[in-house]
């Protein structure tokens, strides 16, 4: 088993004076997926209660979603996915230097799921932290992990293990439950980052949970029907007037930007994976990008729906298993969530 680099060479450097080059430093050595075991037909189990019209069936393009049972917690999905990713990578947990997780829909609010994973996996000499974000956590975690790889040569292996537990939701797609983990390994030659783009800017305010924060805290008289997701006030007018007209070009912008940075035309990618929104929306997005539709497996939406921003890594793993992504392919990943957009170009 490999000893940690830090012990071999404690004097390492993040020299901000040097010209940085993030590409090729580390590759993804393993991807693990853990979806809920139970599946439901959303048009029978979810759509009627949500008042969704059957006419949207083909527009959404989802006919089966994984929904957690009472025992499948967010940390269960993250831990299972982490174990599978480590196994695929052939890496002993003790070799992991950094664990990154997410905690906006975790077992508890503001707890350290990353620390829980490190403890369960028996990783003792480690740094862990949790991204507080929604679907965008996948993009943030990957971007942060690559920055750590660039700057800190003592870090040889980073485990990103994320989960999402909003199953039964219907926006922007039928939502399922699950987790996804990937292992970044310094010097690994497969699935290396070529470049990335991250767009975080002012956006129309669409959703607000009126109660529970500092401005309007919970009191013994608070009225709160259902869970917090049921109480978010969604500004449909702002969505229709301010966001919908620009949503396709907005979602396309990070990928177009990263292609420009990398000096390639969008259609030069061999495969592209998008966070699962409505199937027909993703079709429009692909067309707007100028990428041939055959380069993205839109049909993956059929039996998955939307889990989180890590949809793209689940799809990447599935495509590799099915032989749709092969060695030397240039792969695009487009992640969007909570108003933030990420795009990554990676080389298998």
């Amino acid at each position: 088993m490999r000893e940690k680099t830090a012990k071999e060479s404690p004097l390492v450097s993040a020299d901000l004076a040097e010209t940085a080059e993030i590409s090729g430093i580390a590759g993804i050595a393993g991807i693990g997926v853990a979806l809920a075991e139970s599946r439901v037909d959303p048009w029978k189990e979810i759509a009627p209660a949500a008042g969704m019209k059957e006419s949207l069936r083909d527009y959404l393009g989802c006919y089966s979603v994984p929904i957690a049972n009472g025992q499948e917690s967010p940390s269960h999905f993250a831990l299972t996915a982490a174990l599978r990713a480590l196994e695929e990578a052939g890496i002993c947990p003790s070799e992991v230097d950094v664990v990154i997780s997410n905690n906006i829909t975790s077992d508890y609010l503001d707890w350290q799921m990353s620390g829980y994973l490190a403890s369960e996996l028996g990783i003792e000499d480690v740094t862990t932290f949790d991204i507080y974000a929604g679907c965008n956590s996948a993009g943030i975690a990957y971007q942060a992990a690559m920055a750590i790889m660039k700057a800190d040569p003592s870090v040889g292996t980073i485990l990103i293990a994320l989960s999402e537990h909003l199953g039964g939701g219907t926006f922007p797609q039928f939502i399922g439950d699950g987790g996804c983990a990937w292992v970044l390994r310094r010097g690994h030659a497969d699935l290396t980052l070529v470049d990335f783009s991250n767009i975080n800017a002012e956006m129309p305010r669409l959703g607000l949970l009126p109660e529970g924060g500092v401005i309007n805290p919970f009191t013994p008289e608070s009225r709160f029907d259902g869970e917090w997701q049921d109480n978010v006030e969604f500004n449909m007018d702002a969505y229709k007037q301010e966001l919908k007209p620009i949503f396709v070009p907005m979602c396309a912008s990070p990928f177009l930007e990263v292609c420009e940075k990398a000096g390639i035309a969008p259609d030069e990618v061999d495969r592209i994976f998008l966070v699962h929104q409505q199937k027909e929306f993703n079709r429009k997005l692909i067309a707007h990008l100028g990428v041939d539709e055959s380069k993205t497996p839109l049909h993956y939406i059929h039996d998955m729906g939307h889990i989180s921003g890590f949809d793209v890594f689940i799809c990447l793993k599935r495509a590799m298993d099915e032989g749709l992504v092969v060695k030397d392919d240039l792969v695009g990943l487009v992640v969007m969530g909570l108003g933030e957009l990420h795009a990554f170009l990676i080389r298998y």
């Binding site: 967010p74 503001d110 350290q112 990353s114 490190a118 000499d125 740094t127 932290f129």
Partner: peptide, 19 residues
Amino acid sequence: TRTDGRFHDVVYNEVGGWR
């Protein structure tokens, strides 16, 4: 920086997550 994951459960907000 360093973490001991055993102590992940010392402080958190119990409401708002899955449990």
